[in-house]
Design a protein around this nucleic acid. Structure first.
Lengths: 215, 215
DNA sequence: CGTTGCGGTTAATGAGCGTTAACAGATCCT
DNA sequence: AGGATCTGTTAACGCTCATTAACCGCAACG
């Protein structure tokens, strides 16, 4: 199954990064291209060219163009959910309150938004291009992730209705996922500063969930 | 130019809505379909069928599929900017402070987000499908709208850097534009309640712009 | 009453593109 | 050595789909 028995290669020292396999190269480039020009806007030849092979050579690694998108979307959705669960478990193991759990969820999501911008774009832009089965799986993972947040938000803000909490969580996702819309990396004041800004905005939005009505 | 000289038709009483012209029907249905399945995911035959004519009949009204998308995106961008300018002018004419101006901008944007969900989706999903000239125009309108917000935000929060303000404005747009991602109209607690919730979240986020650093 | 033009129709065209076929050079295992 | 497998290649196929061509009814109008 794994064509690379060890990392025995022209590797100079010890590659702490285990040398990206061809599949991973393809997925990374495909994600970048899909995010730039849309799933239908990029042809298989371009994806191939981006990794140095051309056109139909991709079919040695993937069943088709759809399969690449599916793997990307299932992957990011799964990692988001896994990260969220780990963070909640870790915070609860440390006897932290709901506020700390929520803070950790926010931090984790910010990491994804800043480090996997292409996937963040794809994951709600191209969901409709998936085959029914894959789409259902991605939606299921997304829904579980949302519900994880909803539970934490409601634990923190006891009074809020479930629908309001869910809408607020979606809104905060929209807020945190906004960084891809900032032209490339141009206007961003640096990764850490951006993360800090997003963190404050997200906490501010959620803090307003309970409180005096506006207007 | 206008084929309907008056609204003399089997109109029962006085149609305060001026009877949608064919072009408008097409644009509305195209917007809905594009938002549902993506620009490339819907064919001209489907758009035609949605308004009762079939296929190439659309070319009597539009130069091509691209032209429909362009008109939709330029339209929504222009209306957003116009609305924003009007609201600022109105608020300033009433001698309102920056806080009131910002509140009016938020209210106006919420109206668009809730009433033109399809266009809100399209306007940052399918920008890349436009011809260069149209894309530049839409981007210009969007940029002016953003800068309008940035000015108001900076007037209200004197200390914040321009880049931070811009990032925060983008983030608030992401927050306000999140409603389309709530499955159709299902989990929404009613239009007014949703608007109120979004208003509170947006104000909360922006209020956090200046204040104690998180963590 | 012609005729002009608007708003349709169906059939044909042609490009783009995902996918498959057929073939070939390594590398590895025995 | 010699097949088997993995990973490429180029050429061909076939389908989808936007766009154009050619044709037509019909309302307005002089």
């Amino acid at each position: 199954m794994n064509p690379a028995p060890t990392d025995a290669s022209p590797a100079r020292t010890a590659p702490s990064v285990p040398a990206p396999t061809r599949r991973e190269q393809i997925l990374r480039e495909a994600a970048r291209l899909f995010a730039e020009r849309g799933f239908h806007g990029v042809g298989v030849d371009e994806i191939g060219a981006a990794v140095g092979i051309s056109g139909p050579g991709l079919y040695r690694h993937f069943a088709g163009k759809d399969a690449m998108l599916a793997e990307l979307l299932v992957g990011i959705s799964g990692r988001l959910l896994a990260s969220g669960r780990e963070r909640r478990a870790a915070a609860e193991a440390a006897d932290a309150g709901p506020a700390a759990v929520l803070g950790s969820l926010i931090d984790g999501h910010i990491d994804f938004a800043l480090d996997d911008r292409a996937l963040i774009i794809l994951h709600d832009r191209e969901l409709g291009q998936l085959r029914e089965a894959d789409r259902k799986q991605v939606r299921s993972l997304q829904r579980q992730y949302v519900e994880l947040w909803v539970d934490v938000v409601r634990a923190l803000h006891c009074g809020v209705a479930e629908d309001d909490a869910r809408a607020a969580v979606h809104a905060v996702f929209g807020l945190l996922n906004s960084t891809p819309h900032l032209g490339r990396v141009g206007g961003l004041p640096g990764r850490d500063a951006t993360a800090a800004l997003l963190r404050r905005l997200a906490h501010g939005a959620l803090a307003a969930l309970t409180g005096p009505a506006r207007h």
